[in-house]
């Protein structure tokens, strides 16, 4: 089967753009079949044959089998992201449709970012006493704090919307 490999970087707050891009590839007949670090592997399919979705979650086997039950195929997993696809002929395929589950998704991302940020900050500060390399961890913590802010901004926007409707 004809396949191709594309290397592309997405920041954590760009997961919606990533999903849109994966689906525009699927619409052109390149459907995601494997994921790696910043690397996406596509296989030749009928254009628009699949809908691709990604979900941020701790590994949850029950959830995967639940999605398989829905006719979705598990593609793979990169860090905290799990990728699924489903044949478009089975109808619309969404993972999170209502505001509550989208807010939950963003909260989960926030929690993970905060944990990794604090870890980097802690390691950075304790390393600084020994070596200046600790600066790298502190820079990482700074970048993670920025990511956290972006995701939190998205979440707050949804929360404001949630005050008006579901």
């Amino acid at each position: 089967m004809e396949t191709k490999k594309v290397t592309r970087w997405f920041w954590v707050w760009q997961f919606e753009e990533e999903e849109l891009w994966l689906n525009s590839m699927a619409a052109e007949g390149w459907t995601l079949c494997r994921v790696g670090f910043c690397t996406f592997y596509f296989e030749r399919t009928e254009p628009g044959a699949y809908i691709v979705r990604e979900e941020f979650r701790k590994r949850d086997v029950a959830d995967e089998s639940f999605l398989r039950e829905m006719g979705a195929e598990y593609i793979g997993r990169m860090a905290m992201w799990i990728y699924f696809r489903r044949k478009a002929e089975l109808g619309e395929f969404e993972l999170n449709s209502d505001l509550d589950s989208r807010i939950q998704l963003l909260s989960n991302i926030c929690r993970m970012l905060l944990a990794v940020m604090l870890m980097n900050l802690g390691i950075g500060l304790s390393n600084l006493r020994v070596t200046s390399l600790g600066v790298i961890n502190i820079l990482c913590a700074g970048l993670l704090a920025y990511c956290y802010g972006r995701i939190q901004g998205k979440r707050d926007e949804l929360k404001r919307e949630r005050q008006l409707h579901e």
Binding site: D63, L67, A72, E92, F93, E94, L95, N96, S97, D100
Partner: peptide
């Protein structure tokens, strides 16, 4: 149309 993740949660 219930989304799979929403339904599961």
């Amino acid at each position: 149309k219930l989304a799979a993740g929403t339904l599961y949660g």
